[in-house]
Each structure stands twice: as structure tokens, then as C-alpha cells.
């Protein structure tokens, strides 16, 4: 009951000032009466007594219910615990010029750019993940929003197709991630959040950007999966660079930074299209962790109920009115 009251309220409480009007039927004596010489001679009749009381109560209730109805009461806005099944995935795709290059290990049956491999695998992934919400951001020199987080797969697929045009510019990883994380803002956590970073290189992040990203990841509680498409001759994430050479290997620094974020992080180092496919399969497994979350159930408008009550009371009043005797004297 307490819980019920906590969640109840009025949209237009000003109307409640009219509530004292409900006392009118209880106090007023304006109804038709027949003069009678001596009511003391009349027997006390319980049914009649209660009928009179019911009549007054119905009148009061009808007015009260109309006033309540006008003040638009609601009940609800309660939170319901749900278990989310799908994931919310923001795909952050690198479209820098280097993505047009081949993988480190050249496949035997011709050339496949990293972008093409990534596109194929991502298209496959997007088509299969029915339960998920997907969004996509591509970045090169600056990030571009392709599709906000939602169920619109067509937009994502179309964006992936559009990457055939070829990449250009540099690698602004931080701004791409920040934009992706922005789309989690003010969204209910109904599933695991995952940022899927697909890139072939990295950029150096200054400490301010690092802090900002760290805060954003913490706040949104998103996991990070990095599919690192290693270029031919690119450095591996596992190999620690030599002392004093760290600046030459921004990938390694980024990897270290991501690992220090404190969120779920996993890096996949893909050197060929098969490795990318394997990484995606792995991610598809990981992202489906069930998530408990609180969802606000939409509140119920109770004014309809009060109007119904008023209507019923009015019907009862009408019925009583119809039974009223118009003429006391029976015409001879």
C-alpha cells in the first residue's frame, strides 16, 4: 500500500480544490418532499433508510470522482526489474586510408583489403544478431555517426556497404569512441553494452583524452572489444616495444590504456579474414551475458477509472430518481 501511494500522484492537483463540493449532496436538502402530518406514526424502515444514505453517498461519490478524474490521477512510474538478453553494440569502424591495405599475411586467392574483410564479417554479424540493438560510428580524421543505437539494421548494413568507397585520412580513435559512448547516454541498460572497435592502427591519446574516455566507459559500463587488423609489418599488441621506443608503437600504448580502463576489455589481433571471423564469433558469445536492469513501467492514468466510477454513481442516481414517486395522492 505504501508502495502504491509513493507512486501515485495527480497531474492537475489544482482541481482537487473542488473536492469540498462533494459534501454538497450530504448537506443540501433541495430535493422534493411530500408534506406529511406526522412521521412519528410511520414505521422505521431499514431499506428506505439505507436507500436515502446510498442516494446521498452516490451523489457525493459522483462529484468526488469527477473532481478526481479532472485532476488526472495516475499510478505507477514504478520500476520493474527485467533481465536483458540482447546486447547494445556500437560498432566503431576505422575508415582511415590504411584500411585499404592488405593483411600482413597475404591470402593465396588474391588480394582482400582489411576493410573488405571487416565489412564482410560485420555484415554477417549484423544480419545474424536479431536480439541486439546496433549503432555504428565510423571515423577517420573525425568521427561520423552512421546509425544511432537502435533496431535499424538496414542503416548499419547500408553504412557497411558504403565503406566500399575506400578510406581516407587519419585515425581519430578517441573521438570515435567518445561519439559511440555518447549514444549510450540516457538509454536504459536493457542489455550488455559493447563497443566494437575495428581498426588497424591507433593514435596517441593525450592524458586529458584518456581521462575523459575512462570516465565515459565507467559511466556507461560498456565493454570494449578491439579487433586489431594488423597490417603487413605492423606491430603486434603482445610484443612490448623496446625501451624508449614506445612512441613509435601507439597500438601497444592504446592496448595498455584499454586494459587499464577497468571495464571488460578484450583485444583480438587479426592477421587474416579468418581471424576476423573467429574474433566476431567470440564476441557474439561474450556479448550475450544477461543483464539485470530496472525499467520504468509507464504510469497508469487512473482518471478513466474515476470517470467510470462517476458514471456508475450517476447511473445509480438516475435509477433512484426514476423510482421516485411524482404524485403522492393516487388519482381516484
Amino acid at each position: 500500500m505504501n508502495h502504491f501511494l509513493q507512486n501515485a500522484g495527480f497531474e492537475l492537483p489544482g482541481w482537487l480544490l473542488l473536492l469540498p463540493l462533494a459534501l454538497l449532496p450530504l448537506l443540501l436538502r433541495g430535493h422534493a418532499e411530500f408534506p406529511y402530518p406526522a412521521i412519528a406514526n410511520l414505521p422505521m424502515d431499514t431499506l428506505s433508510l439505507w436507500l436515502e444514505r446510498a442516494w446521498r453517498a452516490c451523489g457525493a461519490l459522483a462529484i468526488a470522482a469527477i473532481v478526481m478524474g479532472l485532476s488526472s490521477p495516475f499510478w505507477g512510474e514504478q520500476t520493474i526489474e527485467r533481465i536483458g538478453r540482447g546486447a547494445h553494440i556500437m560498432i566503431v569502424l576505422d575508415r582511415s586510408a590504411s584500411m585499404n591495405d592488405d593483411f600482413a599475411n597475404q591470402p593465396a586467392d588474391g588480394s582482400a583489403s582489411k576493410m573488405a574483410a571487416a565489412r564482410r564479417v560485420l555484415q554477417d554479424f549484423v544480419s545474424k544478431s536479431r536480439e541486439d540493438l546496433l549503432g555504428m560510428v565510423i571515423f577517420s580524421t573525425s568521427p561520423i555517426l552512421v546509425a544511432p543505437l537502435g533496431g535499424d539494421r538496414e542503416a548499419v548494413l547500408a553504412a557497411l556497404s558504403a565503406t566500399e568507397a575506400g578510406g581516407m585520412g587519419f585515425t581519430a580513435v578517441a573521438r570515435g569512441l567518445a561519439m559511440a559512448l555518447d549514444y549510450y547516454e540516457n538509454k536504459p541498460v536493457t542489455g550488455a553494452r559493447a563497443v566494437l572497435l575495428v581498426s588497424d592502427g591507433a593514435a596517441h591519446l593525450d592524458s586529458k583524452t584518456q581521462d575523459t574516455l575512462r570516465v565515459m566507459f565507467k559511466k556507461q559500463g560498456a565493454s570494449l572489444y578491439w579487433i586489431y587488423l594488423r597490417s603487413a609489418g605492423g606491430a603486434s599488441l603482445k610484443d612490448k616495444p623496446e625501451e624508449g621506443q614506445e612512441d613509435a608503437y601507439p597500438e601497444y600504448a592504446l592496448h595498455q590504456y584499454f586494459a587499464s580502463l577497468g571495464v571488460n576489455y578484450k583485444a583480438y589481433e587479426a592477421e587474416n579474414p579468418q581471424a576476423v571471423a573467429l574474433a566476431m564469433a567470440d564476441i557474439a558469445q561474450l556479448k550475450n551475458l544477461p543483464v539485470r536492469y530496472q525499467e520504468a513501467a509507464s504510469r497508469h492514468d487512473l482518471s478513466g477509472f474515476f470517470y467510470l466510477l462517476a458514471c456508475l454513481c450517476s447511473c445509480a442516481l438516475l435509477a433512484l430518481h426514476l423510482t421516485e414517486i411524482r404524485q403522492w395522492k393516487v388519482p381516484a
Partner: peptide, 28 residues
């Protein structure tokens, strides 16, 4: 008077008020 107690309406709800004391009575 016969209208006081004999020739009453058969069915219906009536409110009567006492002509002397002003009291009310509901009669179904």
C-alpha cells in the same frame, strides 16, 4: 386522511417531511 395511510402509492421511493417538526423520512 386516507392518503396518510391507506391510499399510498404502491411502489416507489418518496421522501416525506413532517409538517410540524420538519423532520424527514425516506420511504421506499
Amino acid at each position: 386522511d386516507s392518503a396518510e395511510y391507506e391510499d399510498l402509492p404502491k411502489w416507489g421511493w418518496a421522501r416525506v417531511s413532517d409538517m410540524e417538526t420538519g423532520g424527514e423520512r425516506s420511504l421506499f
